[in-house]
Amino acid sequence: MDTVITHQAVRAHGSAACRRKPANPRRLWPFLLPSAVVCVLILLFPLAYALYLSFFNYYLDSGVSTFVGLGNYTDLLGDAAFWGALGRTLGIVVSAVGLEFCVGLAVAWGLYRLTVGVRTLNLLMFLPHIITPVVAALFLKWIFAGRWGLLDSVLAGMGVYAPDWLGSPMWARLVVVLADAWQFTPFMILVLYAGLNTVDQSQIEAAQLDGANDRQILLRIMLPAIRPIVAFVLTMRMMDAFRYFDTIYVLTSGGPGSATQTLTMQTYALAFRLFQVGKASALGVLTLVIVLLLAATLLFILGRRKENAE
């Protein structure tokens, strides 16, 4: 009898605990306060200050500032250099991210099919991603340097006349794209490989029973299944590629001419060479708006395709 009473008491206590009201949300706010302060100081305050400076004609060398309203924005939108830098930036971003996705998907699919040595290969292929961008750019510059670079020396030994990799506009853009792909494709491989491993095996087995080959399984079964992951990694890489600066600065400094003069390079030139901080801030704000619009468009397109597929 005592045992029955004890069990009933335990069950009653458990049900009472389940019905207990959740903690007061107001008590949780102090735990979020340190993170909120850090976000405000690191993210919101610099953004607000840059937005504030964009309305002034502010020169860094003299410290003189004059309120011009939207004058900096209208000057930039009417400047052919801005549209040229935007076009070059879009070309580099689309080429680099597209190359990284195609190569990353192919390598991730190959790793998915492997049964031995996957972890070792993942580790080795991820090494370029952990190298400091400036160090990686110096290494690549030594490879692609004209006449005395490693690639030119190898090609000369084979009797092949190499082009001026960093001195020709077309080849300089190609080197910049390859440099970004070399460093960030491992990130794409890692994310896509993790995504492929989340696909339901029953769908793959059913497709195999229906006679689907490997290409059909990858493109029609696995890719639609990991569409949210694809949208995430493409959006992240697109936003990251838009602020591509350090590698370009070391490799070409925006040259030859203006062949690799991207929006970030133009922002740097306005702020620290011409000391036009107000116009540079306006260009930074415009770049942010462009990136947000492109990211929203990309997510909308991938989300709409998913809804149509359903």
Rank of each mutant, 00 (worst) to 15 (best):
T89C: 13
G167V: 13
A162Y: 03
L121Y: 05
L121S: 06
M158G: 05
W171Q: 09
M170V: 14
T74R: 15
L174P: 08
H129T: 12
M158V: 04
T89G: 11
A85P: 07
L166R: 01
T89P: 13
F67K: 03
L111H: 04
I92S: 12
L70G: 12
A136Q: 06
V107C: 07
V97Q: 06
D164A: 09
V97F: 11
L111E: 08
L123F: 12
L127V: 15
S54V: 01
V38E: 02
G87Y: 12
W83K: 11
P133N: 07
V134S: 01
G71R: 13
W165T: 08
A85M: 10
S62F: 03
L44P: 03
P46D: 02
G157Y: 02
M125L: 15
N72V: 12
W109S: 10
A106N: 02
L77C: 05
A106L: 13
L53H: 05
L121H: 04
L77G: 05
G71W: 11
L77Q: 08
G146Q: 11
R147N: 14
V93T: 13
L76N: 09
S153Q: 03
W83T: 01
Y49L: 05
L105T: 02
W83H: 14
T66S: 14
V107W: 08
A80H: 12
M158S: 09
S95C: 13
G91A: 14
L127M: 14
V160N: 11
P163G: 09
G71N: 06
L77F: 15
A136S: 13
V154S: 00
A156I: 00
L51G: 15
W148C: 00
P163Y: 00
M170Q: 12
L114V: 10
Y52E: 04
S168M: 01
A172G: 04
F55A: 15
P169H: 05
D75H: 10
M158R: 07
I143H: 00
V38P: 05
A50N: 12
L60D: 01
L47G: 01
S35M: 11
R88W: 08
P163M: 02
V38T: 08
L77E: 08
Y58A: 05
P34W: 01
S54C: 00
F126D: 05
T120M: 14
A137C: 08
R113H: 11
V107M: 08
G71Q: 10
V38S: 02
F126G: 11
L60F: 09
Y112H: 15
L60P: 01
L47K: 00
G146C: 00
L174T: 14
H129P: 00
L151I: 02
